[in-house]
Computed example of a mutant assay.
Amino acid sequence: MRVGLLASLLSRQATYRRAGVSRYIEALLQYLPGVAPDLEIIAYTSRTVWRAARAEFPPAVAWRVTRWPTERPSVRIAWEQLVAPWATRDCAVIHGPVNVLPLALARPGVVTVHDLAFVHFPEHYPAAKRWYLRLLTGLSVRRARRVIAVSETTRRDVVRTYGIAPERISTIPNGIDADWRRVDDVELERWRRQQGLPERFLLFVGTVQPRKNLTTLLEAFARLGPEFPWPLFVVGAAGWLDSPIYRRVEDLGLARRVRFTGYVPPEELRYWYSAATIFIYPSLYEGFGLPLLEAMACETPVITSNCSALPEVAGDAAVLVEPTDPLAIAAAIQSLVMDEERRRMLAQAGRERARQFTWERTARETSAVYRTLGEQRSGERGGEAV
């Protein structure tokens, strides 16, 4: 059975576009050929991405390349809605991996919904992006034969917001690679010296944008006082509406204690997680929260929000706080700083929790959705023939 995966958002740019949903697409292309050799996976993307990325994926992945510069959002949207229905006409199933499907598809479609942050926090999005996501996500989940939600939280959001029948939605969580684990101590120490990092520091990983709630984290960090000896590193590319975040650092007098690294490639992230003493992720809303999982796999104690999908991912392996309360965040940080034994217990619990989430599982369960749709289509065609 031939499956068309719309991979326009697969990115190799050194920007926030290589995080999150790009890594989801990358994982599907890496793992689907191994867990579902009976499926023919065809990735649709731009010539630029194909040239940069094709050597990284299994030979079994077939590529169909467009000359349209779909790295540009407006071009990508036009291609998906105007060209993709025709370009994918020989596929049995079409997968829109990031919230949106071509609406004129002649074949069964499955769409993955990662979150509905644009519904809950519309003010955190530029107007054009907010309008596009609200319109096209709603139309796509109603058009799709099957919806994949990356968490139970997202599944419930889709049911409530769009009135989709729960039985049409499959919850398939994100994952991590099997070899994503804490870096060896000797190698880590060598890397730490190369980077000039202190022995202990706090870490945040994510795109610098309003929903990640960095302003509240900065306020919490400021409340720890100038005598607090550990710096805070913010690892992630600049996103959108981020200027107030950088201004807040200056306003709070934190310029010498908070360091923004900018974009860090995925292969280096494991070193940052492993070197950090505490990982803090106080996001206001996440459909899953991949950095949380990555930090736990690297045995780094985690403080995260008590809302959206984050408790679902963390289980009992993290400290949960109210993300809008800087006093609560500061108290959680101070408590872990003073309690080395609790940090050790959280590190161990996080490692065990993270083992439950793998990209191989994600790919296997996704392939089962493809097969179900393919069988349904075969049954419908058989019925028509009779």
Rank of each mutant, 00 (worst) to 15 (best):
V249E: 03
V249D: 02
T215K: 14
F221S: 08
L218F: 13
R223V: 00
V235I: 08
V249I: 13
Y246K: 06
P226A: 14
L224Q: 03
R248E: 15
L241K: 15
P244L: 06
P229C: 12
F233N: 04
A238F: 02
L252P: 00
V234T: 08
D251M: 02
A222N: 02
E227R: 14
L252M: 02
E250T: 06
V235E: 09
T215E: 15
E227L: 08
E227H: 11
P231N: 09
A237W: 11
P226Q: 14
L232R: 13
P244S: 01
A238R: 13
L232T: 07
W230R: 12
L252F: 01
I245N: 11
R223C: 10
E227M: 04
L218H: 05
L252N: 00
A238S: 05
D242L: 04
P229A: 07
G236L: 11
A220H: 07
L241Y: 00
L232H: 12
E250W: 00
L224I: 04
F221M: 02
G239P: 07
P226L: 03
R247D: 10
L224G: 06
V249W: 05
E250Q: 13
G225E: 08
A238I: 03
L232D: 09
F221A: 05
W230Q: 11
G236I: 04
T216C: 15
F233T: 07
V234W: 13
T215H: 11
E227D: 15
V234Y: 13
P244D: 01
F221G: 05
W240R: 10
Y246V: 07
S243D: 13
L252I: 00
A238W: 04
T215C: 12
E227A: 15
V234H: 08
P244I: 03
L218G: 02
W240M: 11
R248A: 06
D251E: 13
R247W: 03
L217P: 10
L252K: 01
L224E: 06
R247A: 13
L214A: 11
D242T: 01
G253K: 02
D242Q: 14
F228K: 08
R247H: 08
Y246Q: 10
S243C: 00
R247S: 08
E219A: 15
W230G: 01
P244M: 09
A222W: 01
G239S: 09
E227N: 07
E227W: 02
A220M: 11
P231M: 13
L252Q: 00
L241Q: 15
L232S: 06
L217I: 05
G236F: 03
S243G: 05
V249Q: 05
L224T: 06
R223N: 05
A237D: 10
D251S: 09
T216Y: 15
L217Y: 07
G239C: 10
P231Y: 11
G225M: 08
F228W: 15
L232I: 12
L217D: 10
T216P: 10
I245D: 14
F228N: 04
A220F: 06
A237P: 01
T216H: 15
E250F: 00
F221D: 03
A222E: 04
P244G: 02
L224M: 09
Y246L: 12
A220K: 04
E250C: 02
L218I: 04
L217E: 06
V235R: 03
P229Y: 11
G253H: 02
A222D: 01
E219Y: 01
Y246N: 01
L232F: 14
G253D: 03
A238D: 11
G253N: 06
L241T: 05
